[in-house]
């Protein structure tokens, strides 16, 4: 693990540049090429970059048309707009057609910060997860994003990559295994399992370290792929530790926590606690301030871990 800080959106831009030699790859941007770091691809492969204006509905349909003609389009804008503005186009033009479209949506979550609630997509995982054929990935750092982009390009079918605006600490390095659909254990533990994605992986590791100081052994799992969810891994955790806390920068309904709960409840019920946005909108503020105010920190995971252990004992 290194302490280098880079944004996942930077990983997106850099990865597109790396896989851009593949002539099938085309990149579309809705007037946000600098913000989504797709300007890097634009400079190197101008013929395969398409500036689509602030017209997201057409952009998604165009991408579907290009995919049906053999291309691998990467649709790039903020998560606040894709999927939220264009659900119908994603559902019919992309998913029903099984069009090979990849969505790189940056500035997701509360940590977009000062731009406020309109720009803080907090329901996108739930929305995308509900669509047949859609794969949903939430990378936790720069290196993981790069692997996710390359693998997304290599598989057939629609993929949603949920990316952030801010620089985040490296939780992985080039050698860390990454396979779409396979959650990774980042820390072993026997008393409970914390399953996290995105920026919350860092918070989960911090919480686990603090729990360790209280003689509680917490396992931490980085569940970067929300769909298809790694059922085997989750059940293995449930059976071994018997208690689960999920942590995500997303609404509590329909996201990672729900996906994990669906597996647990149906197969091997154990006590669960959910760290997530509690059915409200965000607001302007510094990312760290927002995470604190809306209870998405390592302290909150720590408390949830104690709570879930109390329930486990009963």
């Amino acid at each position: 693990m290194t302490s280098e800080q880079k944004a996942t959106r930077q990983g997106y831009g850099d990865a597109l540049l790396e896989i851009g030699e593949n002539e099938k790859i085309v990149v579309l941007s809705a007037d946000l090429s600098e913000s989504t770091k797709t300007n890097l691809f634009e400079e190197k492969y101008p013929k395969r970059f398409f500036q689509c204006g602030v017209a997201e509905q057409n952009m998604v349909g165009m991408a579907a048309g290009m995919a049906l003609s053999g291309k691998i389009p990467f649709v790039s804008t903020f998560a606040a707009f894709v999927p939220n503005r264009v659900l119908d186009q994603i559902r019919v033009s992309v998913c029903y057609n099984d069009a090979n479209v990849k969505f790189g949506s940056t500035h997701a979550g509360l940590t977009v910060g000062e731009d406020g609630a309109t720009h803080q997509a907090m329901e996108d995982i739930a929305v995308m997860r509900a669509l047949p054929r859609m794969t949903v990935i939430v990378p936790c750092d720069y290196e993981e994003t790069k692997k996710a982009v390359a693998q997304a390009a290599a598989i057939k079918g629609p993929v949603y990559l949920r990316l952030g605006r801010n620089k985040v600490r490296a939780m992985t390095n080039k050698e860390t295994p990454f396979h779409i659909g396979k959650a990774e254990t980042f820390k072993n533990g026997k008393d409970l399992t914390i399953i996290a994605c995105g920026v919350m992986v860092k918070e989960a590791m911090k919480a686990a370290a603090e729990l360790e100081r209280h003689n509680i052994s917490a396992e931490v799992v980085n569940c970067h792929t929300i769909k298809p969810i790694d059922k085997d891994k989750i059940l293995d955790c449930a059976k071994r530790t018997g208690a689960i806390v999920t942590a995500e920068e997303h609404q509590r309904y329909g996201g990672l926590g729900s996906a994990v709960a669906e597996v647990v409840v149906e197969n091997y019920p154990v006590p669960m606690e959910f760290i997530a946005m509690n059915d409200s909108f965000g607001e302007s503020g510094k990312p760290e301030e927002l995470l604190k105010k809306y209870h998405l920190t390592s302290d909150d995971i720590f408390s949830a871990a104690k709570q879930v252990l109390n329930r486990k004992k009963k």
């Binding site: 349909g61 165009m62 579907a64 048309g65 995919a67 003609s69 186009q89």
Partner: peptide, 15 residues
């Protein structure tokens, strides 16, 4: 939605 798809196909043909 169809015209967006047609635009994507026509653009790909040009490309």
């Amino acid at each position: 939605q169809g015209l967006s798809i047609a635009v994507g196909m026509a653009l790909t043909a040009k490309l």
